[in-house]
Design a protein around this nucleic acid. Structure first.
Lengths: 364, 364
DNA sequence: TTGTATGCGTTATCAC
DNA sequence: GTGATAACGCATACAA
């Protein structure tokens, strides 16, 4: 295999990005002075500063990030690895995170793991290698290697979107179990006894798992048999939510309320119900989780759990900035998630709270 | 101001990430051999390879990206700058882009510009400085400095989401003007004569501008006065869409059809209509653009323009890979956008196609 | 197959 | 206030 030179070998000088040296030469100063102009302008004379910046502009100079990281051992870059960018679940929180970092002159690098711990490990490796000064991670579930990596590389990180008193790591978030239990309580209050849940895959996803456990806990607390909960597990997506609802209604005992692991699944379930000619909430109630924008725009609007997206993002940024600065970030932060009652949740159809409703829907 | 050492000064050795040298020492080989093991394993004996990898694992070694970029002058990293991550407009395309890059062993860095050319310039600078081998950009509108930067840094890039024969740059996308004109044609076919448009800010956003022009073109082609088009310009968001629709209906001539610059605005408009007690499409028709997931889940489902998200993403990746490899990527690629007819578009209320409908709604 | 030596672009520690 | 110059961690041409 032959290697052809990428650029014209006759003008090698112009073929490559300008460096500090080029700028220095053109400005008639040393590289040290140029570096100072860029990093600590106050230490340099107004006059030379002007000359240097003129040269910078003329050459279109941009500092080489790698070289800078190598020499300075700091990148002013934080990383965030979120499970997905395909829907807006993490968008608002990430936005707030980014805004707060901006105030500190920190650049944010975002990667998505597609809910795969292995992929996440790879992303962590990549971000750490890139010199990320600190990392934002979602949830506690990840490979041991991931944690080992963060440890040996001494990269500060914070776990967001969850608050779990049993976990030792610094985190900021809410108690997913408690929140889902509270929502389920509301559902049970309305007389529903035949429940189903559509959840994301619970392996490697503690948020999903805790939400599921929250439903069970609420049932047990009322003396209901948790075994009575019908469960469909499927990746987060609208079409999967629709299919899951179809599957639930097509066989087995008919639920009067379907609790969804998040708003995306719930929006899908709503769609699925509509396709079956079911009225929500008259025939069946559906609830979501997260309170992202679609929760409000679907018809009927979703009863859901409102999650403190922006506070988590902003708080996470502050914790990380403190950590990087060698300060004590303090303990993990628990934020409140609140129930948002909207039209998709109604009383159990045609029955008193004590009498489970019979099947109201048959076949396709 | 005092500077305290971040780590225990007594064990400076363990306080820092392991380097190639550390691995080499532990494995009893030279740094060159370790480097080869990592980059071209085939050039190294099975036996030494094992020793080296054992050392790598034991130390939790991860190569320093900056140093690597500095020495190798290539990062195997591409960058993408999209206008927003807050909604799913670019999610599917980006996903496809990423998947294709993965096949080539390339890592993707994503940044968002919040629809601001200045911010985008900054992001370009950042990604270029980080050594991105190539860049994916959305649309042609950006600061001259941005283009100058890409030029002087010799960073290959491709413009996606648009196909504009008047622009010389390599691009892959569809003709936004033509697509919107086609959609408007359908609307006019149904007898609508009193049109309104809710558009994103058109400055620095050629997609929005072209879509707007598409509506005008369709009207002109039918002999309608483009001046008759009522226009509200507002940033993409659901609530803005809802407000915009309210504003349109609250004063001035009542439109029978509202064309929205994208699905997010359209979903908002739908919401706004519902709040006013208007039935869609009986009282008023509403259309979107992009065909993202919410288009299907709102009630009524949105008539919209289906955009070849995944093909754009995948195609863009291929163009960039070719460019980076010094190959000829060929000419810009025009993809087709197609009309997706759904329930939100109906015939003009209570009137023959030739007779514009009178006001059907008054006050708040 | 492996080791040696050099340079990548920047920061920072010194002198001046 | 400014200029040499030594790291920083890695890849690679070259020598062995």
């Amino acid at each position: 295999m032959e290697k052809a030179p990428v650029t014209d070998p006759k003008s090698p000088r112009s073929a490559v990005s300008p460096t500090l040296g080029d700028v220095a030469e053109r400005a008639g100063v040393s590289t040290a002075t140029v570096s100072r102009c860029l990093n600590t302008p106050s230490l340099v004379t107004e006059k030379t500063r002007e000359r240097v910046f003129a040269a910078v502009r003329a050459l279109g100079y941009a500092p080489h990030f790698g070289a800078r990281a190598l020499a300075a051992k700091r990148t002013n870059t934080f990383g965030a690895i979120i499970p997905t960018m395909e829907n807006a679940i993490f968008a608002r929180g990430l936005q707030a995170f980014q805004e707060e970092l901006e105030h500190h002159g920190i650049t944010l690098l975002v990667a998505s793991s597609s809910y795969s711990p292995e992929l996440e490990e790879q992303q962590i490796r990549s971000l750490v290698a890139r010199g990320a000064d600190a990392l934002l991670l979602i949830g506690h579930d990840r490979t041991p290697q991931s944690y080992a990596l963060l440890e040996t590389q001494r990269t500060p990180y914070v776990v967001a979107w969850v608050y779990d008193e049993h976990q030792p790591r610094l985190s900021i978030g809410f108690d997913n179990r408690k929140a889902m239990q509270a929502l389920t309580d509301r559902v049970l209050d309305l007389g529903h006894r035949s429940l189903a849940m559509i959840t994301a895959e619970r392996g490697g996803n503690d948020r999903a798992r805790h939400r599921y456990e929250g439903v069970l806990a609420a049932m047990s607390a009322r003396g209901l048999d948790p075994q009575g909960l019908r469960v469909v597990e499927t990746p987060y997506s609208i079409s999967n939510g629709a299919e899951a609802l179809g599957a639930l209604m097509q066989s087995g005992p008919q639920p009067t309320a379907v609790l969804c692991g998040n708003d995306v699944l719930a929006a899908g379930a709503l769609l699925g119900a509509r396709r079956l000619g079911l009225d929500v909430p008259k025939d069946i109630s559906i609830t979501g989780f997260d309170d992202i924008e679609i929760a409000e725009i679907v018809t009927p609007a979703l009863t859901t759990v409102h999650v403190p997206h922006r506070n988590m993002g902003k708080g996470a940024a502050r914790l990380l900035v403190a950590l990087r600065g060698g300060e004590d970030p303090g303990p993990s932060v628990e934020l409140e998630a609140t129930i948002k009652l909207r039209e998709s949740l109604g009383p159990v159809p045609g029955g008193s709270p004590s009498r489970p409703a019979g099947p109201r829907y048959r076949g396709l």
